[in-house]
Amino acid sequence: MRLPTDTVHLKLQTRQYELFGRSLGRGVERRVLLIGAASAALWWAVLLLLGMPILHRLSPLVFLVPPVVFVLYGTRRDDTGRMMLAAWRDRLLFHAPVRRRSIGNPLLHLDGHRTRPISLLVTTRLVTAVSMSDREGGAS
């Protein structure tokens, strides 16, 4: 006998309610914090490798706004409950070139020689048979 369960309908989310001794109110999902930290670290590393100065007057705008916008739009949920990051990943994988090579029949090349395609030249001649009564023009 199977008992009914509600595990399909449960959405367990761990939340961070305090960060560096400061209260975050109702809390922030830990997954969102992890995505934000990873995207900010990656963005800052790219900017520093490209030589962007940290103490420029536009540095706070350049260093902070793109990761914040990425996290805000990427962690929004669609109608099915999936994050937009998953939809973006699916779209990228759909447009990416195929990474797998096609696997042929391994039994065709056992002796190491490759087979050549066969080309056939087919010619036909149309011959119609006419009965003797049709040649005379009479109908029987």
Rank of each mutant, 00 (worst) to 15 (best):
L19P: 01
P106I: 07
G137Y: 02
A86F: 03
L85D: 00
G25P: 05
A38G: 01
M52R: 15
E136M: 07
L85H: 01
G25I: 03
T128K: 07
W44I: 02
D6R: 09
R101C: 02
E136F: 04
G74D: 03
F70T: 11
Q16N: 14
R114L: 10
G36N: 06
V65L: 14
H9R: 14
R114K: 09
R31H: 08
T7Y: 09
A45H: 09
R31S: 14
M83H: 03
T128D: 04
V69T: 08
V65K: 01
A129S: 11
E18T: 15
R22P: 00
Q13Y: 08
L3Y: 06
H56A: 15
R15P: 00
L58H: 05
L24D: 03
A40P: 00
L49C: 07
S119W: 09
L10G: 02
L64A: 10
R77W: 00
I54K: 13
R22W: 06
T7K: 11
K11Q: 14
L12W: 05
L93E: 13
V71Y: 02
P117I: 13
A96N: 02
S39M: 05
V98S: 11
L48D: 05
R82M: 07
D134G: 02
L12P: 08
P97E: 10
I54P: 00
A37F: 06
L34I: 11
T7P: 00
L48M: 07
H113G: 01
P67F: 04
S102K: 13
L85N: 00
P53D: 12
H113T: 12
S102V: 15
G138K: 13
R99A: 14
S119G: 02
D111Y: 04
L24E: 04
T128N: 04
L110P: 08
A96K: 01
N105I: 06
R22C: 05
D111Q: 08
T123F: 08
D90P: 00
D134E: 15
M84L: 14
H9I: 06
R89I: 12
R2N: 06
R30V: 15
V28Y: 02
T123R: 13
W88I: 04
I118H: 06
A38Y: 03
G138I: 11
V98M: 06
D6V: 10
A139F: 07
I54C: 02
P53I: 05
D6N: 10
S23I: 00
P53K: 10
W44L: 02
S59K: 04
L19Q: 13
P106D: 06
A96M: 07
Y17K: 14
P53A: 11
L107I: 09
R57Q: 09
V65T: 12
L121Q: 14
R114G: 09
L121V: 15
W43Y: 09
H95Y: 11
V68M: 14
R30H: 04
P53R: 14
S23W: 05
T5E: 06
Y73K: 09
V32K: 09
T128L: 11
V130K: 03
W43S: 07
T124H: 09
L12K: 10
G51Q: 03
M52T: 12
V71F: 00
V71D: 02
P117L: 13
L121N: 12
